[in-house]
Amino acid sequence: MPTHADLDARSLALHRLVAERLRQDPAAFEHARDTLARWRQSADARVQPYLAAWEAIMAKGLQSTIVVMLEESERAAALRQASPFAGLLSHAERFAALKAWRQEHPHASA
């Protein structure tokens, strides 16, 4: 069974792909902003602080957002759990990335 650290590492790996997508297609950043705005309207109160943090981070621009997105800290790991960037990868891209991650981390797949 995957540990919390495994899940955080998997999330970071997915966010690395998202960061690459954002670098290649900065317009995708607006899609994430739209997602965040929708979530802010309907998310549970427990999630709102994370969404507010993403809003503040994203207000600083794409590069600053990517830095935080890829940061290896407890704060960034927590933020990635409520990431407005998840929809930027296609299902096929996400599936392929998760399959590759499981192959690289077989201990976390049980």
Rank of each mutant, 00 (worst) to 15 (best):
A86M: 08
L51K: 05
W54Y: 03
T35N: 10
L51M: 02
L7M: 10
R75S: 14
S109F: 02
G87F: 08
D6P: 06
Q48V: 12
A32M: 07
L70N: 09
A59Q: 06
R33G: 09
W101P: 00
L51N: 04
R10S: 09
A53T: 11
S42G: 13
A97E: 00
K60C: 03
L12A: 14
H15A: 12
D44L: 09
A108K: 03
A37T: 07
R102M: 02
A110V: 05
P49R: 15
S11A: 14
L36G: 06
M1L: 09
R80N: 12
A13K: 07
E104L: 14
L88K: 13
S109M: 04
D25P: 03
R21K: 15
I57Y: 03
A86F: 09
P84W: 10
D8R: 14
A28Y: 01
D25L: 12
A59K: 06
A43C: 12
S64D: 11
E20V: 13
A9K: 07
Y50I: 01
A97L: 05
E71P: 00
V67W: 03
E30D: 14
L62S: 01
P84E: 05
A96V: 11
Q103E: 05
A28V: 06
L79P: 08
L22C: 12
E74F: 10
S83W: 04
L62I: 01
A56G: 13
G87M: 11
A96W: 00
P49K: 15
A97K: 04
L36M: 09
E74W: 07
S73A: 04
E74K: 13
Q41M: 04
V68P: 01
S83T: 15
A82Q: 12
R16I: 04
E55F: 01
D34C: 10
M1I: 05
A9Q: 10
G61F: 08
L89V: 14
H4R: 11
L89Q: 13
A108C: 02
Q81Y: 03
S73G: 06
L12N: 07
Q41S: 04
A45C: 01
R16P: 01
R21N: 13
A19W: 06
F95C: 03
D25M: 14
S83E: 03
